[in-house]
């Protein structure tokens, strides 16, 4: 059974119909790359999966946790879904280590010592073992984003959502973050990522999903989609970024 199942998802912002019936399945260990023009609904779709956006119709299921339209109790679902944001959103008043420890301590109520060892392990995983005591404003953008990844991983999510996580970075810092994502993918982490890094999407993604005007316009193996797009919209999109 699919790890993530999205059925007939509809979302409006006021009169703006942003998601027009999304159906998507993500298997365990699959890496899905979401692409599409700005405003096509990629972020909204991603944010619906962990309940950051409400939706009016449809169903989302993650590892057996069901999310209905208008549902407000999201604690169980959110423990299974990690998210990394474009703007990092680290907690500025906490050190890198404290950022990573917070949720295991507060939400999972694990003993402090255990949380600390989890945090050290996660920071080591993203190559920042020595930055445990550094505060966010003492870190580069790439380092902050890696801490954000470690923070999400500390909750041992079943799936990790990444929304353009390299878009706010200086070009020379992009690769260190992508390298971490690539490692996660290789380790079998289930990933759904919105990205403008087409080469990366093609290299790491198992499935490419092209969104257009609130719908999944085309999806399939990245190589196939890139070399033989079936729709003029995708062909156009690929043309516009090369």
């Amino acid at each position: 059974m699919a790890l993530v199942r999205i059925d007939g998802l509809h979302k409006h912002f006021g009169s703006n119909h942003v998601l027009k019936g999304i159906n998507l399945k993500v298997e365990r260990g699959e890496v899905v790359a979401l692409i599409g023009r700005s405003g096509s609904g990629k972020s909204t779709l991603l944010r619906s999966i962990n309940g950051l956006e409400r939706f009016e119709d449809g169903l989302i299921e993650v590892d057996g946790e069901r999310l209905h339209a208008g549902q407000t109790n999201l604690r169980d679902l959110r423990q299974k879904v990690g998210m990394v944001f474009q703007q990092f959103n680290l907690f500025p008043h906490l050190s890198a280590g404290q950022n990573v420890m917070l949720a295991p301590e507060v939400v999972k109520k694990l003993p402090k010592a255990e949380c600390e060892s989890i945090a050290r392990a996660m920071l080591a995983k993203v190559g920042l073992a020595e930055k445990f005591d550094a505060y966010p404003d003492q870190l580069s953008g790439g380092q902050q984003q890696r801490v954000a990844i470690a923070r999400a991983l500390a909750m041992q999510p079943q799936v990790l959502l990444c929304d353009e996580i390299t878009s706010a970075l200086d070009p020379e810092l992009v690769s260190e973050v992508l390298a971490v994502v690539k490692t996660l993918a290789a380790e079998g982490m289930t990933l759904v990522m919105v990205t403008h890094e087409m080469r990366f999407a093609r290299e790491v993604g198992d499935t490419l999903v092209f969104m257009h005007e609130g719908r999944i316009h085309e999806s399939g193996a990245p190589d196939t989609l890139f070399t033989r797009p079936r729709t003029p919209e995708l062909a156009n999109f690929i043309g516009s970024i090369h």
Partner: peptide, 29 residues
């Protein structure tokens, strides 16, 4: 910033926990 609410929400913190550990310490300053 709104991102602080979103990041803490996505880590499964409850509203009260978000206030207690993330929002109020920053607002206090």
């Amino acid at each position: 910033p709104k991102g602080q609410w979103e990041a803490s929400a996505s880590l499964a913190l409850s509203h009260f926990e978000q206030m207690r550990y993330v929002i109020l310490p920053q607002a206090l300053k």
